[in-house]
Simulated assay, not measured.
Amino acid sequence: MATLDVALFMENEVLRRGLEDMLRSSSPVGIVRNCENFAEVETCVRSADCDVLIVSGSARARVGAIAAGGERRRPKILLFVDESDVRAPEVLADLPVDGYLDQRELSAESLSETLRRITVGDIPMPVALAKSLLAHVGGQSAPASRCAVSLTSRERQTLELLAEGLSNKQIGTRLGISQHGAKRLVTSVLLKLGSPNRTAAVMTALKTGIIDFSRSG
């Protein structure tokens, strides 16, 4: 994996400083930028040097503005989530982020793996978040909408694996196909469901009753 330029945008100074130290000792990371306000984030994004922007807390309210800034190249956005997010995951569905990391699972290993996944096009999502999503929305499905979207059997399998929070590589292994083949299936599912990310895709499938997730997880 190429050396990464990573920026931090979070109001919790303890978390920010600890994460900064962890990132500086991570082999994939070359530069760590500490953004104390949104103006500094905008400067970082406009420079097109930032590869990954890590966001948490109230700073997430500005994620939409970052993603819609119109720059030719924006950083991948990694959102830190906590216990309150896992209890109410629906608020995350429409955020234009590229991955999630549960603060309770934070370690040098989990951070490095999440950065690796996000840079190869995966949208990492903690299993706890996926399961919470299933539990929260599972009873709100609408069977009458099942015919609104037509998925192939492979796409349905892929959707179930997305709900388990699996990466493209893991999906490929479970389906017996290549990682690139899995990525194509995931992209197809997101396009058919009109979803900006994996979380939104799972929510859409649950709400519309496209597929029965009762056996998942």
Rank of each mutant, 00 (worst) to 15 (best):
T114N: 13
L115W: 01
L115T: 04
R116E: 15
R116W: 11
R116A: 15
R116F: 12
R117D: 00
R117M: 05
R117N: 05
R117S: 02
I118P: 14
T119R: 09
V120A: 09
V120F: 07
V120H: 06
V120R: 12
G121K: 12
G121C: 04
G121L: 06
G121Y: 05
I123G: 13
I123L: 06
P124I: 00
P124F: 04
M125R: 07
M125E: 04
M125V: 12
M125A: 08
M125P: 13
A128Y: 02
A128G: 07
A128Q: 06
L129H: 06
L129T: 11
A130T: 08
K131D: 00
K131H: 05
S132Q: 02
S132R: 00
L134I: 11
L134M: 10
L134A: 11
A135P: 08
A135F: 15
A135V: 15
V137E: 13
G139N: 10
Q140Y: 09
S141K: 09
P143C: 10
A144T: 15
S145G: 10
S145T: 07
R146T: 09
R146N: 08
C147Q: 10
C147L: 11
A148N: 15
S150M: 03
L151R: 12
L151D: 05
T152L: 11
S153Q: 11
S153G: 08
R154M: 09
R154P: 02
E155H: 14
E155N: 11
R156T: 05
R156A: 05
Q157Y: 00
Q157C: 04
Q157H: 05
T158M: 13
E160T: 02
E160K: 01
L161T: 03
L161D: 01
A163V: 02
A163E: 07
E164K: 11
E164I: 13
G165N: 03
G165R: 08
L166A: 00
L166I: 01
N168V: 00
N168G: 07
K169N: 14
K169R: 11
I171M: 06
G172W: 05
G172M: 00
T173H: 14
T173G: 12
T173Q: 13
T173S: 14
R174C: 09
L175Y: 10
L175W: 15
L175M: 11
G176C: 08
G176K: 10
I177G: 03
S178A: 05
S178D: 11
S178F: 03
S178V: 02
H180G: 15
H180P: 04
G181Q: 00
G181H: 04
A182R: 06
A182E: 00
K183A: 12
K183E: 10
R184Y: 02
L185D: 03
T187N: 10
T187D: 14
T187A: 14
V189A: 07
L190C: 06
L190Y: 01
K192E: 13
K192P: 08
L193S: 07
G194D: 13
P196G: 05
P196V: 15
R198I: 14
T199M: 01
T199L: 00
T199Y: 01
A200L: 03
A200N: 11
A200F: 06
A201D: 10
V202K: 10
M203P: 00
M203R: 10
T204C: 09
T204V: 07
T204E: 13
